[in-house]
């Protein structure tokens, strides 16, 4: 009997110590960065013993959860406006960069063979350009033999950061797109077909002759899809690559972006890929649970320092060093509990 009791006590004690050691960091939000957050979390758990419980429920859900204070951090593909952040007592910072790539299925057109610019892409998605041999496309591709196939635009039907970046880019490049459609995680597309997820868009594009779609870079690369070169703000045609995404991030003026409200589409610079975007983390200026917030910041700091290789493996792009330094400065000055900064700077 005594033995049994002792064993039970030991068991309970063990459970408690386990629970204490495994005080996981909790976060929720965007689905786009989920694969890299999961990979980082796995490596961080091995390195530090602290796990991450990240629910990829979508940016909208992440914003709701952090506002309801059920998680330590929220994650969103669309940055919140400075006034919204202030109203909620939140701050945000970029965590990882990715890109969106237009892909086509036109007979005889190989990956990287076609060039498009923002205005033409917008006209295609507005339904103003309907044939592949349209003069506007011909002008950009004088050497290509363009067929008289009708263009079938394919878009993401589910709300997503990919939609946001793509529609934001087209809004910046075309006044008509901006006034008729606008930028959001879902928009009212005037023509074309909607497919669910990257895999849906990729499949729909692959099986429809004359289709054009847009997918996350990793998806286009891993499936060897016929991507399109884009003419950027500097007037140069660039191919989607880790270098061209990072060029866009490095050329962006983060230092003057209030609350990191900066969308990386259509950045200056000869090498910048025009549909680049950052995924953001949302936290409180004055977190209720300072210890949990501190653990989360430790994880982010670790990911900035050690996560670049893993990010590259999954075709995400790590932040430039100058931006990481700026974000860390923001942590030490803007996140505090009881007057003391939560982030110790290590």
């Amino acid at each position: 009997m005594k033995l049994m009791t002792r064993m039970a006590v030991a068991g309970i004690a063990a459970v408690f110590t386990l629970a204490a050691a495994a005080a996981d960091i909790s976060g929720a939000g965007a689905t786009f960065p989920y694969p890299i957050y999961a990979k980082w979390a796995d490596a961080y758990k091995k390195a530090s013993g602290v796990g991450l419980n990240y629910q990829s429920i979508g940016s909208g859900g992440g914003i709701k959860q952090i506002k309801a204070k059920t998680v330590t951090f929220g994650a969103s593909d669309m940055p919140l406006k400075p006034e919204d952040l202030k109203a909620a007592g939140l701050l945000q910072f970029p965590m990882i960069i990715g890109g969106v790539v237009p892909v086509v299925n036109v007979k005889g057109i190989a990956a990287g063979a076609m060039q498009l610019d923002g205005a033409t892409l917008a006209a295609i998605y507005l339904g103003d350009i309907t044939q592949w041999n349209d003069p506007a496309i011909k002008k950009l591709n004088p050497k290509l033999a363009l067929p008289a196939t009708p263009i079938a635009p394919v878009y993401r039907s589910d709300g997503s950061g990919t939609n946001f970046l793509f529609s934001d880019y087209l809004s910046k490049e075309s006044a008509k797109f901006k006034s008729n459609i606008g930028a959001n995680t879902s928009v009212q597309w005037p023509s074309g077909i909607g497919a669910k997820g990257n895999e849906g868009v990729a499949n729909m594009t692959a099986q429809t002759d004359g289709a054009i779609g847009y997918v996350e870079y990793a998806y286009a690369k891993q499936n060897k899809m016929a991507y399109v070169m884009l003419v950027n703000k500097a007037g140069k045609a660039v191919a989607p690559s880790a270098e061209s995404f990072q060029a866009a991030a490095a050329n962006a003026d983060w230092a003057h972006a209030d609350g990191y409200y900066l969308i990386l589409t259509d950045q200056a610079g000869a090498k910048s890929w025009p549909i680049t975007g950052a995924s953001f983390i949302l936290m409180y200026h004055q977190p209720e649970d300072a210890a949990a917030a501190g653990e989360a910041l430790k994880f982010f700091s670790w990911a900035y320092a050690n996560g670049a290789g893993m990010a590259n493996e999954l075709d995400y792009v790590p932040l430039p060093a100058s931006l990481i330094a700026q974000v860390k400065k923001t942590w030490s000055t803007e996140i505090s509990a009881g007057g003391k900064p939560v982030w110790s700077g290590k």
């Binding site: 689905t31 979508g58 940016s59 589910d158 709300g159 995680t185 879902s186």
Partner: peptide, 18 residues
């Protein structure tokens, strides 16, 4: 032509509805 239904619209858009 493509269309949508009530339940598929909800399934598509609820996660990222801000």
């Amino acid at each position: 032509a493509p269309g949508t239904t009530i339940s598929s619209a909800i399934a598509n858009e609820f996660t990222e509805a801000v």
